[in-house]
Lab assay of single mutants.
Amino acid sequence: ETIMEVNLLKGPKGLGFSIAGGIGNQHIPGDNSIYITKIIEGGAAQKDGRLQIGDRLLAVNNTNLQDVRHEEAVASLKNTSDMVYLKVAKP
């Protein structure tokens, strides 16, 4: 597993990826991690090219996303300014 830091500039459609996982909404049984499950065509993440489906999202800005509820992860992604710092684990 490789840890990678990505600074992503939000586009008109936001960050351009979808997530799944978290406490109460496990993407993988027994694993509370938050995973990237979709990269949106023409979105910021696709244009940047570094994020991939299956990457594990560890942090957004200063918010640690390990062992959080799905709703908390979504809220932390929404409550960001235009430049967003992401910390991901690549499988």
Rank of each mutant, 00 (worst) to 15 (best):
S33I: 02
D48K: 02
E71S: 15
K90V: 04
I39C: 05
A20W: 11
L77W: 02
G16W: 00
E72D: 05
L57D: 00
G49P: 07
Q26D: 13
L15F: 03
Q26G: 09
H27S: 12
T2P: 04
G43W: 02
K47N: 15
I39G: 00
P12E: 11
I23Y: 12
L15M: 13
S18P: 01
L51I: 13
T80C: 11
R50M: 09
I53L: 08
L15G: 02
L8Q: 01
I40Q: 10
R50A: 10
G42Y: 08
E1Y: 15
V68L: 12
N25E: 10
N7P: 07
H27N: 10
D48F: 05
K10P: 06
D48I: 02
N7M: 03
F17G: 00
V74M: 04
E1H: 09
K78Q: 12
T80S: 13
L51Y: 00
D55T: 11
D48R: 01
G11Y: 08
I53S: 11
K78V: 09
K47R: 07
R56V: 15
N64I: 14
A44T: 14
A20N: 11
I53T: 07
A75S: 09
L57W: 00
S76M: 13
E1S: 08
M4Q: 07
K10W: 02
N61A: 05
R56T: 12
E1I: 15
D67F: 10
T63H: 15
R56K: 13
G21L: 02
A44L: 11
L15K: 01
S81W: 07
L65R: 00
Y85T: 11
G42S: 13
G54Q: 05
E71G: 09
I39V: 10
N61S: 07
K47I: 14
L77Q: 01
I3Q: 04
N62Q: 04
K78D: 13
G21Y: 02
D82Q: 09
G24V: 09
P12C: 06
A73P: 01
N32F: 04
G16F: 00
V88P: 00
V6L: 11
E41M: 05
L86A: 02
V88R: 01
D55V: 06
E41Y: 07
I19D: 00
E41A: 11
T63G: 07
E72N: 07
I23T: 11
G16Q: 02
S76Y: 14
V88W: 04
Q66D: 06
E1N: 15
N25C: 14
V6K: 01
Q66Y: 08
I36W: 00
M83N: 15
A44E: 14
F17E: 00
K13Y: 05
Q52T: 09
I39K: 02
L58H: 04
T80F: 12
G16A: 02
P12M: 06
Y35E: 01
G42V: 02
A45D: 00
D55Q: 15
Q46K: 14
G30K: 06
K78S: 06
E71L: 08
G21C: 03
T2D: 15
L51M: 08
K78M: 07
N25P: 06
M4R: 05
N64W: 08
M83R: 14
N61R: 02
R50C: 06
D55E: 04
T2G: 12
A75G: 10
M4H: 06
T63I: 15
G43V: 01
V6M: 08
G21R: 03
S76C: 15
H27M: 05
S81G: 10
L15V: 05
K10F: 06
A45M: 05
I19K: 00
I34G: 00
N62G: 13
A20I: 09
I34C: 07
L15D: 01
G49S: 06
G16T: 00
P91H: 07
V60T: 03
L86N: 00
L15A: 04
A44W: 04
N61I: 01
G24Q: 13
I36H: 00
N7E: 15
L57T: 01
G22F: 02
G21W: 02
E5N: 14
K13M: 07
G14M: 03
A45V: 11
K47F: 05
L86Q: 01
I3K: 09
L77I: 15
I36L: 05
Q46L: 05
L58S: 03
P91F: 02
L57F: 02
S18W: 15
A44S: 12
G11I: 06
